[in-house]
Amino acid sequence: MKGFVQDIEGLAHKNDLFRRVLYTAKNCQLVLMTLKAKEDIGIEVHKLDQFFRVEEGSGEAVLDGVHTPIRDGFAVLVPAGTTHNIINTGTVPMKLYTLYSPPNHRDGVVHATRADALADKESFDGITTE
């Protein structure tokens, strides 16, 4: 079957990796993420749009300096060119998934920790899942 059809909520709850690319299409990419207590994604600015959905935990979305509390069930849409960060302000892991449009990472990439992600200078190479 083409495409990705799975229980994204269940996958997000089970994920303990900082970043795991699940599926890469030509124009978007689905990625699981987990932020440890007090961990953040890091301040970023992309030339692409990004969507986050929090499945578990609580924290803050920071978009162009505006801090907004978020928790499970919240969605965050980050337009291209927006300085942003997602921060886990809680005491338990924050489980979420994100969609990049267009893709931002190499298909299938896994970063167990934030340190692994920072050390890896990878980027999308044009290769999709299918």
Results as ranks from 00 to 15, higher is better:
Ile41Phe: 15
Asn104Trp: 04
Arg71Gln: 15
Ala61Ile: 11
Val31Trp: 03
Glu56Leu: 10
Ser58Cys: 13
Lys36Phe: 06
Leu77Ile: 12
Val76Phe: 14
Val45Tyr: 02
Leu35Met: 08
Cys28Lys: 00
His105Glu: 15
Glu39Ser: 01
Val45Ser: 09
Leu30Thr: 11
Thr89Asp: 01
Cys28Asp: 00
Arg53Asn: 09
Ala37Thr: 06
Glu60Pro: 00
Phe52Lys: 00
Ile87Ala: 00
Lys38Gln: 13
Ser58Gly: 03
Val78Asn: 10
Leu63Val: 07
Thr98Lys: 07
Thr89Gln: 03
Lys95Gly: 05
Leu30Phe: 10
Asp72Pro: 01
Gly73Cys: 07
Gly65Glu: 05
Leu30Lys: 04
Gly59Met: 15
Ile70Tyr: 10
Leu30His: 02
Glu56Gly: 02
Leu99Pro: 04
Val76Ala: 00
Gln50Met: 09
Val66Pro: 07
Val66Asn: 12
Ile43Leu: 15
Ala75Arg: 03
Lys95Ala: 06
Asn88Val: 07
Val54Pro: 02
His67Leu: 09
Val78Met: 04
Ala37Asp: 08
Val78Ser: 03
Lys38Asp: 04
Phe51Trp: 13
Pro69Val: 05
Glu55Met: 11
Phe52Met: 06
Lys95Arg: 15
Val78Phe: 07
Gly57Pro: 05
Val66Ala: 12
Lys47Val: 04
Lys36Cys: 07
His67Pro: 00
Pro79Asn: 05
Ile43Thr: 09
Leu30Trp: 06
Leu96Phe: 09
Phe51Tyr: 15
Val31Thr: 13
Ile86Thr: 01
Ile70Met: 04
Lys95Leu: 07
Tyr100Pro: 00
His84Ser: 01
Lys36Arg: 11
Leu99His: 01
Thr98Leu: 14
Phe52Ile: 10
Thr98Ser: 14
Met94Leu: 15
Val31Arg: 05
Gly57Val: 04
Pro103Lys: 03
Phe74Gln: 00
Lys47Ser: 13
Thr68Arg: 11
Val76Glu: 07
Thr82Val: 12
Ile41Met: 12
Glu60Ala: 00
Ser58Leu: 14
Ala37Cys: 08
Glu56Lys: 15
Cys28Thr: 13
His67Cys: 06
Val62Arg: 15
Gly90Thr: 04
Phe52Trp: 15
Ser58His: 12
Leu77Trp: 15
Asp107Ser: 09
Leu30Ala: 11
Leu32Trp: 08
Ala75His: 10
Val78Trp: 06
Ser101Cys: 12
Glu60His: 11
Phe74Cys: 11
Gly42Ser: 05
His46Gly: 01
Leu63Gln: 14
Arg53Ile: 09
